[in-house]
Design a binder for these strands. Structure first.
Lengths: 243, 243
DNA sequence: AATTTCACCGATAGTACTATCGGTGAAAAT
DNA sequence: ATTTTCACCGATAGTACTATCGGTGAAATT
């Protein structure tokens, strides 16, 4: 029983097929391997029919980037929502890493494509990749700020951003390592990232007027939901800075 | 007064010109922008003469990778030599980051090209990039081991590697940020990286049978050349593992 | 029922690049 | 002095891809 597709439905379907095929080829062969010939064939239509749906490959990539960005933003929104619901401070910090790790593993091709495009001057997706990275960095910095790591002066703001950037890079690296089979346990990845982050944030804490140094008891036992009277703080900075 | 070049000298010169031109184009336009036409023109010879020097573009890239690898290894050797000469423990740890940061800034195109190639399945340089990253990761892990962070069981070895990988990624990210003008001060980058690393290593220290937890005094004062009776330890593990 | 629309097709002109070939002149070998 | 070598040249066949064009049949409109 074949469904009697309407014309516009059919068109939309093949358009989707093209996008899906392009994404797969992009992931498997990289942007260099992408061509209207391959995409059209993979989608099951003639090469010339590619142009019924897109002005050129550039336009298809733009759409792909927009859709990818939308998916990414959605997953970030979800992550922040979850993080807000989380109980203890420590758990929240941990989730700050666990959640993006999960997101990456759900759609690894998005990260792979982005990592490639980011440093490739010939890539049509470069701008998108750079912007995505910057957005994510701001998100992460806001997350940290929300956890109480205030950044009052410019120096501390910059440091917070550097920490966010460094930790993001580490997150991507460990996620890739996990996907490549080197680090089977995602929880362990999250642990390492938490530890990395905490070390750097201690630097911030102690030099700014932020929370007191708590060098002891840092070792993150499960009972360490600490800092009960924590700064209610600049809490919603993220809403202004981010998204 | 033009020097009367011998035939082989002249050939070697144009070969070098080709390699230099290819590297420049690779950096500016990426691997996709590379072609025998462009490289030959940039080197000032006919396109067909490209094949006098290289079997094809693939071979040129291979040579470029080998030369790049050699330069990289040399700079790593130098870094380790310097690190060995360094006085205090803390300074050594700091140099562990400062030195690679400097190396990257001396030849940023090498990192850029590598970052691109690493995740690009269509890249001829991919294997080289992946291997380079792995080598550097092992170096770094060995550096940390030399600092006294022993890894006896498999779990700790894996954690040490994860830390090395994460910190490497952060190093690259901050170096790129510096080159892009976002983080003008390289010393500050090194500080952040040191802090990141210390935080993570604390995790390792306290869980392994390694050095005692020293949560206090961690804040890296200049007089912190600490742990005077430190493990003479596995000190030369790196020589076996690395290079 | 007649007409229009349009998603898709095959064919093809145009572009960019690769890799080979025979020719040339100056350096090198004899 | 003669011959050989060879780095470089221009020309060109072959490959892969882009983007356009007119044609076709079925869906949509009238």
């Amino acid at each position: 029983m074949t469904t009697p597709l309407s014309r516009s439905e059919a068109k939309d379907l093949t358009r989707r097929k093209l996008l899906r095929a392009a994404l797969a080829i992009l992931d498997e062969e990289g942007e260099a391997g992408l061509s209207t010939v391959k995409v059209a064939r993979a989608a099951g239509i003639a090469q010339s029919s590619f142009y019924v749906h897109f002005k050129d490959m550039q336009e298809l990539l733009l759409v792909l980037a927009q859709e990818g960005g939308e998916r990414l933003r959605a997953s970030m929104r979800e992550a922040r929502r979850k993080a807000r619901e989380a109980p203890g401070d420590l758990e929240r910090h941990r989730d700050t890493f666990r959640i993006p790790l999960d997101a990456i593993c759900r759609h690894p091709e998005l990260l792979r494509i982005q990592l490639r495009a980011r440093h490739d001057p010939s890539s049509s997706l470069r701008e998108f990749a750079v912007e995505t990275a910057a957005t994510y960095r701001r998100h992460h910095a806001a997350d940290l700020a929300e956890l109480g790591y205030t950044a009052d002066d410019e120096r501390d703001r910059r440091r917070l951003e550097m920490i966010a950037e460094g930790v993001n890079a580490a997150t991507n690296a460990l996620a890739m390592g996990h996907l490549e089979g080197r680090y089977p346990d995602l929880d362990e990845c999250a642990d390492i990232l938490t530890a990395l982050s905490r070390g750097a944030l201690r630097l911030l804490r102690s030099t700014s007027g932020g929370p007191a140094q708590r060098a002891e008891g840092d070792q993150a036992g499960p009972g360490d939901q600490a800092r009960p009277g924590d700064q209610p703080g600049p809490g919603d900075l993220d809403h202004e800075t981010v998204e």
